[in-house]
């Protein structure tokens, strides 16, 4: 199961060009990385929660998906895919399907996963469907104009938590959805991100996607997907941002297999969280004189969560 980029490159592309995601969007990079982990001969049934990915890859009569794709609403992509999976199991049992394997994948942004779709996601995971749910987390409702979600980091400037003289951006901390999914006691949960070429590129994402897809039972992947519009950084720096997120431990990479935590990336040198915040316009107000305590506050939260993960992991 080792990652061989040259071999993987020969697989046919499962997400075509011509979709209308913004230039430099992180989400299609995540989606391509997940779909590439499918065995070439396997089929996939995909659905998306409403969000950038859904409305940009599936504008009637165009579909960027070469696999079966079901249009879904904001709150029910996990329910849609779990229903398709249940129908597939029943039809297979009755001998109504040809041989071969079909994988079931639901994608959702953080709005459609952390907030609006969490009940259908929780239900699908609890019922034990053989499916994968992938959240591409860009930390706000980017599709509708950068409104804060429960995944938005503390003090980020969004259109519904604008940074001003009185309130320094979103006052609340972000929800830790990966941990919530771990506590559903499902066979596989992982947190991942595409990375720059010095950190193995798409290796981490690919390996986790492969495990998630080919572990029987429900699986959940939370992947970081930078958004140049909402995060307000220079578009070509997509993977630099991901690298900084993992090196500051803002977005630790780990997997939980049957309840056992395993950290898959340790930064050589853990960077201060400023390194991650500085290139992003949504945190610009934190660098004004007098706001140092806000950064300290974020740093403490990152350190606390990292310390907790170190306590839980079997390899720390």
């Amino acid at each position: 199961m080792a990652f061989n980029l040259k071999q993987e490159a020969k697989k046919p592309e499962r997400l075509t060009g011509g979709h209308r995601m913004c230039a430099g969007c992180g989400a299609p990079v995540v989606v391509r990385g997940i779909l590439r982990a499918l065995n070439e001969e396997d089929h996939a049934v995909v659905s998306c929660a409403t969000g950038c990915l859904e409305v940009s890859t599936f504008i009637y009569p165009y579909s960027a998906w070469t696999d079966s794709f079901i249009h879904s609403a904001f709150e029910n992509s996990a329910a849609t895919v779990s229903g398709a999976e249940a129908a597939y199991v029943a039809m297979k049992r009755k001998g109504k399907l040809p041989q071969g394997e079909t994988k079931f994948i639901a994608f959702g942004g953080d709005g459609g996963t952390y907030d609006i779709g969490i009940q259908s996601l929780s239900g699908a995971m609890e019922r034990g469907h053989n499916m994968l749910y992938v959240c591409y987390d860009n930390g706000a409702y980017m599709n509708t104009g950068i409104q804060r979600s429960s995944a938005t980091p503390k003090y980020a400037d969004t259109t519904t938590s604008p940074a001003g003289k009185v309130v320094p951006g979103k006052p609340q901390s972000r929800k830790d959805l990966t941990m919530i999914m771990v506590n559903h006691n499902i066979p596989y949960v992982a947190q991942t991100s595409p990375l720059g070429s010095k950190k193995g590129g798409l290796k981490d994402l690919h390996e986790k996607a492969q495990k998630a897809l080919y572990t029987p039972g429900p699986a959940f992947i939370n992947a970081l997907a930078p958004c140049p519009r909402g995060w307000r950084y220079d578009t070509p720096r997509l993977l630099e941002l991901c690298d900084l997120a993992v090196d500051t431990c803002f977005w630790p990479l780990y997997e939980v297999v049957d309840g056992v935590y395993h950290i898959t990336y340790f930064p050589k040198e853990k960077l201060p969280v400023e390194a991650y915040l500085k290139p992003q316009g949504r945190f610009r107000h934190l660098f004004k004189a007098g706001n140092e305590h806000l950064i300290e506050n974020i740093q403490k939260e990152v350190d606390d969560r990292w310390a907790m993960l170190l306590k839980l992991a079997d390899n720390a």
Binding site: T16, G17, G18, H19, R20, T57, F58, Y60, P61, Y62, S63, A64, W65, T66, D67, S68, F69
Partner: peptide
């Protein structure tokens, strides 16, 4: 309901 061929986004040049 509306059924769309797979991969038709190739027809849309961005």
């Amino acid at each position: 309901g509306g059924i769309v061929e797979a991969g038709t986004c190739r027809e849309f040049k961005t």
